[in-house]
Amino acid sequence: MNIIETVQKEIMPLDRPMNFEVGDTVKVHYRIVEGSRERIQVFEGIVIAINNKGVGKSFTVRRISYDVGVERVFPLYSARIARIEPIRKGKIRRAKLYFLRERTGKSARLKEKRVARGKAVAPVVEVPATHEAIPENQENENA
């Protein structure tokens, strides 16, 4: 197991310190590649689970979109995630918030956890784009 852990550290594409916990509301800025272009889509919701460790570490974000619950699983160390922005800390008592799936409306909220001002929080890591955005007019010329 030890060798695998060191190998995983070596092949990790980027170092992204954890700046959120389960129960937090986060904004995930996800890069979507369309052909040679890239745009960023923001997915905002509550982190209901953090799974696995090492390179395979992932987290699940749940949000209610037009009255429908939507969950997305993101690999934490993917370069496709431009940044993860914590919005609000949640007061929670368990590691996996799957009970939120059965709840709607007011009961599906979490109490906010007040954090003392000046408490150290891991910085938001900005991952540079892998594809260069092509300006509109240039693309038209090519087409």
Partner: peptide, 21 residues
């Protein structure tokens, strides 16, 4: 064979890999 793990390709896809010496 040492064991299995994952590798993140450049385009972000997760590739299952076997670690071997």
């Amino acid at each position: 064979k040492i064991g299995m793990s994952q590798h993140i390709a450049e385009d972000g896809t997760m590739v299952p890999v076997t670690v071997c010496t």
